[in-house]
């Protein structure tokens, strides 16, 4: 009899991350191990997103996922794949991320104490607001945006946006009442946060303003309790396979988000060449900063980024 394994999620079961990434992955794990590794989603999450590393490490749940940005100070290497202009496809980025992790980041040992099963990033982060389609830094100057932490916050600050630092769960509240003028988010999140109607102006920045990186981890004892064959089977459907599955689901969710915006009659414009150049200029210090931090952790940041970009460029996204 297989022991029942618990999976804890801070997002509701209907969210694309759970419905289209985690649940299919659990199904794959079950199939690959002939039902010996059977993971079930708990009805309710066991804590705040920021606690998930500890929740899994200490065995409150057997497996779980969260964003690296929720534990600042703990993860610096993952910030490398969150930088501006890294690519248009979450699938390509996520697969490239896993490969970069294995080749460069793994020796940084940032996931000490848990079994890292997979990584991913969401699709390109874009600019959405309630006033007008932004086409220059001047348009954004002084606008109040709800911003996530980490690289996204630094990008927003570099563009002169006034950051309102409130939990993501308050996004609708902030925007619908006009406390915030806009958000930076991938297209998917506009629909899943139900804010399509309140931010009708979107500027698409080709290759994205930022990406948020996520990790999927399992309790170490739980993982070690599997037979070596089962461990191998689990990893076969995790790792790169998970990155591909999750990235593909992000891309699909982005398309749904975009369709939803268009159906609502929102203005969606691509950033002008001049605006892109402005953003590049304003944010280029972020990459330099990160390379320095990566080097401090004993990882060749410049080489890792070059490798990552090469992997993205050579990845064929088949829709």
């Amino acid at each position: 009899m297989a022991k029942q394994l618990n999976f804890s999620s801070w997002l509701p079961p209907g969210h694309p991350i759970v419905a289209d990434m985690m649940l299919p992955w659990m199904e794959n794990v079950k199939k690959a191990t002939g039902g010996r590794v059977d993971i079930t989603l708990l009805a309710k999450g066991l804590g705040h997103p920021k606690s998930y590393f500890d929740i899994v490490k200490n065995g409150m749940a057997d497996a779980g996922y969260t964003c690296n940005a929720y534990s600042p100070g703990r993860f610096t290497l993952s910030e490398g794949v969150e930088l501006p202009f890294l690519g248009n496809s979450a699938e390509a980025n996520s697969v490239a991320y896993w490969r970069t992790y294995k080749k460069y980041f793994e020796k940084g040992d940032e996931y000490k104490g848990v079994q890292l099963l997979g990584v991913m990033t969401h699709g390109p982060g874009q600019i959405h607001n309630s006033k007008k389609v932004a086409q220059s830094i001047a348009d954004l100057k002084g606008m109040k945006f709800r911003v996530p932490g980490g690289i996204a916050a630094q990008v927003a600050a570099s563009l002169g946006i006034v950051g309102i630092q409130k939990p993501a769960s308050q996004a609708y509240e902030l925007l619908s009442r006009g406390v915030a003028d806009g958000v930076v988010l991938p297209l998917e999140s506009i629909k899943s946060f139900k804010i399509t109607k309140v931010v009708p102006y979107t500027t698409l920045v080709p290759d994205g303003l930022y990406n948020v990186s996520f990790y999927l981890v399992m309790n170490q004892d739980t993982f070690n309790s599997f037979s070596p064959a089962d461990q191998k089977a689990v990893m076969a459907v995790s790792g790169e396979a998970f990155a591909k599955l999750a990235g593909r689901a992000w891309d699909a969710a982005d398309r749904v988000g975009l369709a939803d915006m268009k159906a609502n009659g929102n203005s969606v414009e691509t950033a002008s060449k001049a605006f892109i150049a402005e953003i590049k200029e304003a944010t280029k210090h972020l990459e330099e900063d990160w390379v320095k931090k990566a080097n401090e952790k004993g990882v060749d940041g410049a080489a890792a980024l070059k490798f990552f970009r090469g992997q993205v460029a050579n990845y064929d996204v088949i829709n």
Binding site: D54, A69, Y70, S71, P72, G73, R74, G149, G150, A153, G163, Q165
Partner: peptide, 19 residues
């Protein structure tokens, strides 16, 4: 114990980077 862990991992706040 949690405080010790937080010190070891270097946990900080998101914006002000306070330990």
């Amino acid at each position: 114990i949690k405080a010790g862990d937080a010190a070891e991992y270097g946990d900080r706040t998101e914006y002000l980077y306070m330990p």
